[in-house]
């Protein structure tokens, strides 16, 4: 039963085997250590000249990857913790995202920046955040997030093959999740629809009439799915789940189709609530579909505490999702 980490590691290996232009850069990514979260383990042994360990220089890691991409290579940069993406913001926003358009489509920037994100491991305020919201809505920059339902390997290979820059957000707890398809029984009550394209959205439709739609991405799908099962078993409330792989730029058509059936939207994210992903998704939904009801579950607008009880109180948990779903269903 493969776990997400193994699929991501396989994707990097496969991309390097099939395309000699693919290079990896990042901090502490050489064997035997193989990266802080082991996504690059084994690769420096297989490709000693193409896995480049760097100093602690996030701006230069992404900046150099941008330069390599402009000159015909396909670099994949690892930022050890997603929190450190703030140090790369200039390179992502003012360089990678700009070059293609501001140079009048004369160039492409096929760079991938991978970053482990998210909390629930007790790493405290600067190693637990979900900062992807800061990079959403940047023209020219794609933000892609794997999950356990689609194949993370296909998603990462697609990002590496993409001619445009991709910020690839990997939740730390997702690494050890087994692939959903192999978890027999857990999804049997849902019919799964998938959009076309490199970064598909999934719609999970229950057998009975759904009362609401839950939109989510990444690791939070694990929580949402558990919440959906609990609502079904204990409350006989059926929900549809729309799971996104590409957050920005976004195509919400699958969500709109689901909302036409349910009329109620619950968004779930681990980033802070204010001015976040759920806020924008809700706004788009309300503009498009008059009369729908929306509710957001997200982290409190606080830094993430180091201690477990405080961290649990700050980040959205399974019961927060269940409670919000019940309230929304009752409206």
């Amino acid at each position: 039963m493969p776990i997400v980490l193994e699929r991501l590691n396989y994707a990097l290996q496969h991309a390097m085997e099939s395309d000699e232009r693919v290079y990896l850069l990042g901090e502490d990514i050489l064997d035997p250590y193989g990266g802080a979260f082991k996504v690059t383990r084994g690769l420096s042994t297989k490709f000693p000249k193409r896995v480049l360990t760097t100093p602690i220089s996030e701006a230069a890691i992404v900046g150099m990857a941008n330069g390599m991409a402009l000159r015909g290579l396909r670099p994949v940069a690892e930022i050890m913790f997603g929190d450190f993406l703030t140090l790369t913001a200039d390179q992502l926003v003012n360089h990678a995202a700009k070059f293609r358009w501001m140079y009048n489509d004369q160039v492409r920037v096929p760079v991938v920046v991978r970053a482990p994100m998210g909390g629930r491991r007790g790493y405290g305020p600067t190693h637990s955040q979900s900062l992807e919201k800061m990079f959403l809505g940047v023209p020219g920059l794609k933000v892609v997030v794997p999950n356990s339902l689609g194949d993370p390997a296909e998603l990462l290979c697609a990002a590496i093959a993409d001619d445009d820059p991709v910020l690839f957000i990997e939740h730390k707890l997702l690494y050890t999740c087994p692939m959903s398809v192999s978890r027999e029984g857990e999804l049997v009550d849902f019919q799964i629809e998938q959009t076309q394209g490199a970064y598909p959205a999934f719609t999970l439709r229950p057998a009975n009439t759904p009362r609401l739609t839950i939109a989510c991405y990444g690791y939070n799908f694990e929580l949402v799915r558990s919440a959906a099962l609990e609502l079904m078993m204990e409350q006989e409330i059926f929900v549809e789940i729309v799971l996104f792989s590409q957050l920005s730029p976004f195509d919400l058509e699958p969500l709109f189709l689901s909302l036409e059936r349910t009329g109620k939207l619950l968004t779930v994210e681990e980033g802070t609530r204010s001015l976040g992903w759920g806020a924008e998704v809700s706004a788009e939904a309300v503009e498009r579909l008059a009369g729908i009801k929306v509710r957001r579950v997200a982290a409190l607008d606080l830094p993430i505490a180091n201690g477990k009880n405080l961290e649990d109180a700050i980040l959205p948990g399974l019961q927060d999702i269940v409670t919000a779903a019940l309230e929304l269903a009752a409206r």
Binding site: A59, A60, V62, G63, M64, A65, N66, G67, M68, A69, L70, R71, P75, D90, Q91, N94, H95
Partner: peptide, 11 residues
């Protein structure tokens, strides 16, 4: 910001 980009080009 242009300096790391140029350095990556050199690489």
């Amino acid at each position: 910001g242009i300096v790391p980009v140029a350095t990556g080009m050199a690489l």
